[in-house]
Design a protein around this nucleic acid. Structure first.
Lengths: 151, 151
DNA sequence: AATTTTTATTCACTCTGCTGAATATTTAAG
DNA sequence: CTTAAATATTCAGCAGAGTGAATAAAAATT
């Protein structure tokens, strides 16, 4: 529900003026989305929404920093199937059709040791500066997998 | 971990003969994947792997039937941001880059009321036979969202 | 400045998916 | 047919994410 609620929140604050979180809660309810003020407060932060005299507004982009790390780990443990290392590249295999999703989540993490990312249907190619770094990336990925799922 | 383990299992049974689940467990361990026989038994079923005189073999495709329903609901509640209905079409908005992932999961469910699916970067277009069906699809999707996340 | 309104935080609960230990069942071997 | 090996199932525990009630803090109003 969270993501959909986020979508509806953005839609609402763009289309009309919303001035309090309680008001937002009522507006969401009309769209079949139930949420308390507590939840909305969290959402505001996660979406990077601020209060202005003209109502709530989203500034810049979503605050993905805290979210994305979790998201990549989650997606990886859900869809990542293989990790291979060749020269300065790391090749990831995912479940069919899920490569771009995993790649986007990884991209959001902005690893300095990854120069670029290319996603096909079930394959992701990571370009690293050199072979050694590629190896390190592979290890880092493995670690994420074994640590998140815990066995 | 599960998905990666699945990937490694497939890699193993393709590259060399594996004849028991205990043997598989040992082979996996060398790839840094720990799993008990219980887990492997489940994996065999989920992957549609059968035992043959020449070792384990995967037949046909993955048995996604039980898995995919969960997977779509999970992905939808994670990435779906908006649902709109126009004529015989339903347009879904997702988080940037995650459209194909959600579309694939939905495709796997093989809803009879959806004639076809097209995914871009953050948008999915569902084609239905007619406007009424499209409306029903929208409702069904909404229901999945509100029921899975439970408020 | 005092009071009310609005927003943020803390804490605990729930729900879901994954896993393994113990155990039952099935299959293979003798 | 009996026994041993391999596999499947049941049950319970664990961990992570999301949420709300109660409450604290901050902002706005008077």
């Amino acid at each position: 529900m969270k993501s959909f609620r986020h979508g509806q929140i953005l839609k609402l604050i763009r289309s009309r003026g919303i001035f309090t979180q309680e008001e937002l809660a009522r507006a969401l309810k009309e769209l079949s989305v139930d949420a308390t003020q507590v939840t909305l407060s969290r959402d505001m932060r996660e979406l990077g929404i601020v209060k202005t005299p003209e109502g709530y507004r989203q500034l810049g982009r979503e605050v993905s920093s805290e979210t994305s790390a979790l998201q990549f780990a989650t997606l990886a443990s859900e869809f990542l199937r293989d990790i291979r290392h060749a020269q300065n590249q790391v090749v990831l295999k995912t479940a069919p059709g899920h490569a771009s999703s995993v790649a986007v989540a990884l991209d959001d993490e902005e690893w300095p040791e990854v120069v670029g990312t290319l996603a096909g249907d079930d394959t992701i190619l990571l370009i690293c500066p050199d072979s050694k770094t590629a190896g390190a990336v592979r290890n880092r990925l493995m670690k994420i997998l074994t640590e998140s799922g815990r066995k």
